[in-house]
């Protein structure tokens, strides 16, 4: 049970939150080619190291926020664009 720092609620057990996965920028649906769109849908960097990801404060304030987590160690640090 790792501790995830919610910007509103402070450090919380991860069971209070939901991990919404690696941040993947959404292309403009008007102009994106199908190939670009499907890269957005399916391809993930999936690194063994620092990843920027979204969490949802499900049992708390309901905020979606991003943090950086090291997938090899589970260390967590603030994301620049949280």
């Amino acid at each position: 049970m790792i501790v995830v720092p919610c910007p509103n609620c402070g450090p919380r057990n991860s069971s209070d939150l939901r991990n919404a996965g690696e941040v993947a920028p959404r292309p403009d649906p008007e102009t994106a080619s199908l190939t670009e769109w499907r890269s957005y849908l399916y391809l993930r960097e999936n690194p063994a190291g620092w990843v920027t990801e979204t969490w949802y404060c499900r049992s708390g304030c309901r905020r979606y926020f991003t943090i950086e987590r090291n997938t090899a160690t589970n260390e967590i640090r603030e994301s620049e664009n949280s």
Binding site: P5, P7, N8, C9, G10, P11
Partner: peptide
């Protein structure tokens, strides 16, 4: 640190 990280405490 944890206390300081918790905005409303």
């Amino acid at each position: 640190d944890r206390r300081a990280q918790t905005p409303r405490s």
